[in-house]
Structure formats: C-alpha cells, structure tokens
Design a protein around this nucleic acid. Structure first.
Lengths: 151, 151
DNA sequence: TTCAAATAGGATAACAATAGTCTTATTTTA
DNA sequence: TAAAATAAGACTATTGTTATCCTATTTGAA
C-alpha cells in the first residue's frame, strides 16, 4: 500500500544514472549492469521515459539515451506521470473516474483530495538534481518535517 | 501505485460511520448495509481495528462496535497502522528491511525518507473528526496547498 | 553488403498482493 | 435453547505488478 512501483523506481534510478554522465549517451545495457536491474524491464521503462520527453534516444550500434532536460528540470512527478496511469490514493480522485456513485455526498473525498495534492507536491518539488551524489541542494530545499509553510 | 487499500478505505469509512453514532453500539451488519460494503471483508477490518484499540467490541445478540477514543483522537495513521504491514513508498524504509544491499551508498534513500516522513505526517494530522459530516474543523486545519484555502 | 549492437515494441507468462468468500466456533441475551 | 452477534482460520478469485520472450528496426563499421 502507498508504494512506488518498480517501474518508477527503475525510472528514477536510470534517470539519475544518466544524469551523472553529463550529456554522454548511455546504453540500457550499461545502466542495467551497473545498477543491477533487469535489462528487458529497464528497456520498457526507458522507452516510456523517452516517449514522454524526459530522455531522448539514439538507435543503432552506438546508440543509447541521454537527458532531454537538465536534472533540475526533471521532477519525480515528471517521471511518475510517464510511467503510471493511476497515481491517486483513491480512485475517485483520478480524472474521469466514475466508479463511485456516492461521490456527491461523500465526506471523505475532499479531505482525501487535500492529502492527494500535498503528496503530488512532494514529488513535484523533488528533482533529479536533488538525487545526485554529493548534492548540496537537497537539504537546502524546504524538506523539513515540522513547522514548514505547507506542512 | 501509491493507492490506499480497500481494507484501509473500509476502516476509515466504518470508523467514520461509528463516530456519527455518538457512542451507540453499531453492528457490522448495519455498517455493511448502510455503506454498501462486503460484510465479511468489513468484519475482518473491524476485528483488526478492535485488536489495535481503535474500537471496542461487544459480542452477543445485541453486540457491535463503538469507538474507544473520541474522533479527534483517532488519526488516519492509527487506522492505517492497524490494517497494513508495509506502508512505505520503498521497501528499504520499512523497519528491519534488508532487501537492498546498496543501502549504504544509495543517494535515493535519504530523499525518499524525507518524502516518507511528510506523507506520514499528512495522515497523522487528519483525524476522524475531520471526516465527519458538516465538520467545521477540516478547513481550519492547515491543509492549504499553495496559499489557496482548500486547494 | 553484411554483421553486430543498439533501441522499439507487442505478447505473454509468472508472481505477488489484494479482495472477497466460506465455514465454524464462541459469546451473549431473551 | 434459539437467535443474533463477533472471532477467526482457510480458501478462492481477481487484479496488478514484474519479468521474460520474441521479432523488427535502426545505425555504424568492417
């Protein structure tokens, strides 16, 4: 419950790995080997990230992937949205969902919506830049737990 | 991904329903019928809530359930912890987890931990009181998103 | 031209987690 | 003693996730 999928984990790990390569093209094989991930599954993930403009691909014998944007322009939400359809804590918060017929007099939906927006915010505020080794921006971001403007 | 389980949904719905009864004992049958939930599945949920001290049960012919604490003393985290084992966005944040051998030089774990703590906070701050009909406390809680009243 | 190494992508299998059902035992009151 | 309730274990069904397999296509170099 409330867990990130492997797909998203793979996506974040791979994007982070590519980011450490500073513009070099990196093959799926290299990422899979270095990060000890399943090559096939990783490939699917990379293809989805490519389709969503997070990374760009080069086919052919010396092909591979590189970032389409700088690491500080790629949020975890960007990656999550590329890889997952349903990302709400309850179905009735997903756009177009009509699975619940009690929506109108439900006293839970609004409170859940508030929580949802704040969770979305957490993943939007964090970028690949924050995940890079020796990064000094992570703890200067407003990620403290108590007494924060939004928390 | 990142979804609440039905068990937790049932738990929250049931606790909220019981709370509207102001100390009366309520049977699982009544809750199941009124909220249109599976009786068997709801029973399991209620039993777990009972074991964890959220509600108390009375067996026998006029038995049922009532809250053990006042609605504003029951947080969503209390309910979630009663009903789910693993509630972290990645496994390596669960207490005692050793599934990942790269933990020590992982640049993702700390950032994820920060997000995890903030998510935990969201569910801890919200209580059953906030979910009650005509509740006037929900929007006085600091649940604003980015300067907007309710998001 | 041909081969090797890479991405692209569909199909499907294996696995795990979630959700739901069934059955029986126990408790309590009338 | 019967009825109505909770307690709880076992089991089944369903769904979602994860992984694998296979083939096609692209590209560059020998």
């Amino acid at each position: 419950m409330l867990k990130l999928s492997k797909k998203v984990e793979y996506g974040i790990l791979a994007t982070q790995y590519i980011a450490t390569k500073n513009g070099e093209t990196v093959s799926a094989k290299e990422i899979a080997e270095r990060m000890e991930l399943s090559f096939d599954f990783l490939s699917k993930t990379l293809q989805a990230l490519m389709k969503n403009g997070i990374i760009s691909s080069q086919q052919g014998i010396h092909g591979g992937y590189k970032l389409s944007k700088s690491p500080d322009q790629i949020s975890l939400t960007d990656i999550i949205h590329s890889l997952e359809e349903r990302i709400t804590i309850v179905n009735c918060l997903s756009p177009g969902d009509e699975s619940c017929d009690k929506m109108d007099n439900c006293t839970l939906r609004n409170p859940f919506h508030v929580i949802q927006l704040k969770i979305d915010d957490l993943f939007t505020e964090m970028t690949i830049q924050h995940l890079l080794p020796n990064n000094d921006k992570l703890y200067s971001l407003d990620l403290s737990i108590k007494g924060t403007p939004n928390g």
